[in-house]
Design a protein around this nucleic acid. Structure first.
Lengths: 262, 262
DNA sequence: CGGACGCTTGATGCATTTCAATCATAGTGG
DNA sequence: CCACTATGATTGAAATGCATCAAGCGTCCG
């Protein structure tokens, strides 16, 4: 237990639900800000129960009755779709202060599993829905969070659409870093709570391609690899260049339908 | 003007804003349902103004001040990110009853362009935000819509992450069909309002690969290609099989961390 | 009618997948 | 406590499939 485990993605558990996101309209200087007021958090904590999941455990399965929403306190969760042939496509990695448990007509649309040991609040959907129908302020905050998640999902789709393995990994690392920029610990130091094959399933590559891309980035001096779970970003500019230059499909680019307003 | 233009994605303009999505918890039998009440729609129409865009016209640009949200009445819109080198990654195609104009700290996060002639409502963000902060019922409906969009974005990411061109196109066509399943016109008949290169930029392929994938699907009897903008799905099962079988990355699949609750 | 644009089709090269073997790490039980 | 084994990660060699380059065709619009 004295073993050195640099667990950057673990946060001291706050004792009320909390949700963080980049604001929609308010031009705050901070990247992510707490969305809920003290009063809202206190109120949510009344109906919330704490649940824990060991590493690798299933939190819910696609198709299950969606009777609850989860709010992560600590740890990392992945949500994924399972192809009929058993392959798994990861749709998101979720961290502290994220919401989890997207439903469609009363059922979960994807499966969720703990990537690290996870602590979370469990909010019964029935109670929550009642509140959402009545409390405009709470709703507004949820809307902000959903917009945030929507932006993330769109960015994910862009990453997955890239052709170059290097560009995919570079963008993935950039995205991860911007999330971990929270507690001002050593800049450039990145924790990778998820496995290589999780990364592969997220960006749309084979496990081997991810491994090779890591080496290549290191060889070019963009990053350095310490532990398999810990890397350091050495040359942010180069990383950005790799993500951008190598990110585009056809290069010459003849714009299609480039009209502008008359 | 007597020219036959089967424009399935055009709807008779309703004269109030409307938003449709698959419900979260309510287990309605209908796929998409109108989310707004008559009263809400009437109220929104007071602040809404009608705007029109010709085919190919820019609706807004990433980085612009996000002073309005759009609600499509008729036509198709694409939202996209421009890479620095000029390539364009499409994040979504939007149809009638969709919302448009995602903002972050007061600015649009992506650009939007009309794929067909477009009619839309323009809702000033300032007024809308005021209402969202006060009206819980309206908020709840917006939340449902955002969850819907979030699911779509996740599905998009999965499509983009596929390795096979055939699987990408097959999934794209399935997604398109499930959206057009509205007015009960000929089942299996699909309109493709967007160009091949738009499809390519959406699924993450080269234009040529998309073209070849269309042929291959037709050769296998899964679809038939009439006009370039109109195809017909002949063998839904085969299309689904291609999307599934060819969709997965490594084949043998050894599950990782497959523990279940004790 | 002509030009531009979008689409198709062909040939080639290369990046990634795939297959396969080895290495490292962590978790387990003797 | 340490060896043992399952799992994850790396590395190499070969093959598939997509991107790319290039040319030709169809169609819409001026």
């Amino acid at each position: 237990m004295a073993r050195k485990r640099s667990v950057r993605w673990h946060r001291p558990p706050s004792f009320v639900p909390s949700i963080a996101a980049v604001p929609l309209w308010g031009a705050a200087r901070r990247e992510r800000t707490q969305l809920l007021t003290e009063e809202e958090r206190a109120r949510l904590s009344v109906i919330a129960s704490i649940v824990r999941f060991a590493r690798g455990m299933q939190i819910y399965r696609a198709g299950d009755r969606a009777d609850a929403v989860f709010n992560i306190v600590d740890g990392v969760v992945k949500t994924y779709h399972s192809s009929p042939d058993g392959a798994e496509h990861i749709t998101a990695f979720l961290f502290a202060e994220d919401l989890l448990g997207l439903a469609e007509r009363g059922h979960f649309v994807n499966s969720a599993r703990a990537v690290t040991p996870v602590t979370a609040y469990r909010l019964p959907a029935a109670v929550l829905e009642g509140w959402l129908r009545r409390d405009a302020a709470l709703d507004f905050h949820i809307i902000c969070k959903l917009c945030h998640d929507l932006r993330e999902a769109q960015r994910h789709a862009v990453i997955a659409g890239y052709r170059s393995a290097l560009a995919k990994l570079a963008m993935f690392l950039q995205a991860l870093e911007s999330r971990q920029a929270r507690a001002g610990e050593e800049p450039g130091a990145l924790d990778l709570p998820m496995s290589r094959s999780d990364i592969a399933a997220y960006v749309g590559l084979s496990l081997e391609a991810v491994s090779r891309a890591f080496r290549t980035l290191a060889a070019r001096g963009a990053i350095s690899i310490g532990d398999k779970r810990h890397i350091r970003i050495l040359d942010r500019a180069q990383l950005a260049a790799i993500a951008a230059v190598d990110g585009a499909p056809p290069r010459g680019r003849r714009r299609s339908l480039g009209r502008t307003a008359p």
